[in-house]
Amino acid sequence: MTFRARHLLGIEQLSPDEIVTVLDLADRYVDLNRRTVKQSDVLAGLTQINMFFENSTRTQASFELAGKRLGADVMNMSVAQSSVKKGETLIDTAMTLNAMRPDLLVVRHPSSGAVNLLASKVNCAVLNAGDGRHEHPTQALLDALTIRRAKGRAQRLTVAICGDIAHSRVARSNLILLGKMENRLRLIAPPTLMPPGVEDFGCELYDDMEKGLEGADVVMMLRLQKERMDGGFIPSEREYYHRYGLDAEKLSFAKPDAIVMHPGPMNRGVEIDGELADDINRSVIQEQVEMGVAVRMACMDLLARNLRAERGRAAVGVMV
């Protein structure tokens, strides 16, 4: 078992070994979560603070449940509505919270790199729950777990990521993770929704969905992030749906057993056909949500082990 990280800021800092460690442990937490009594005490006595500078229902609920099932004391702070409006800076908010001695800090922030900045100022384990357009590591891990359970492996697959790649932190974390695990990656989007410099990413690029989906094992759809757009990336939602929305016809170009994924929340009829999203033979969207809780349990468990070990070493005066 390998997991050295002190914080979970992004997939970029994880080695393939560490990724596999998270997935293996998460598998065991899936079993726990399927029991009627879903209790563990691995985080007993630890304090987890969820700090969301951006509104979120799903991710926040998932982290909260994960912490509670592992026995942590969980507190939610909706920072979007509080001190930030009074002019307090991110660092001040972090220092204030740090003084309350949390052990795990789960942070979502609208600015890329904000979670890295915060992690450098506190002495607890920080989990990135999404920062700007940068990374969303637990989403990529839960996607990998979903793929591994559906396909039997998370390597040597052809994965197509489709849609608003430019604005998506989910896409960034996923392409880093799937790249590290030696998968063949395809990015499918209109040129306006491709990030600059994408030609250097080492992925295959398509602006034609049917060609891009040909022979894919996994089709990963992304949400059109209207809130991050400052206008004019696509002519209209209906044209976007016509050319880039996933429906049964376009999916028929992928492998017959290809799975369909979406990080949610979905814009039905914009990037994905509603019926297809609900098709239990193709869509694993509900499994993704279930895996989310397990993966977050695994991440917090592993970070808490490292935190305890580090504090233990500090207590006996060993050089860290």
């Binding site: 890329s112 357009r133 940068h134 430019a166 960034r172 600059p196 410099g197 994408v198 990413f201």
Partner: peptide, 20 residues
Amino acid sequence: AGAAATNSKFASLRGLPGVS
């Protein structure tokens, strides 16, 4: 407008808005 970096693979992976 709004750029904090130069368009590139680096800026895109950091999630920073770039300028050509």
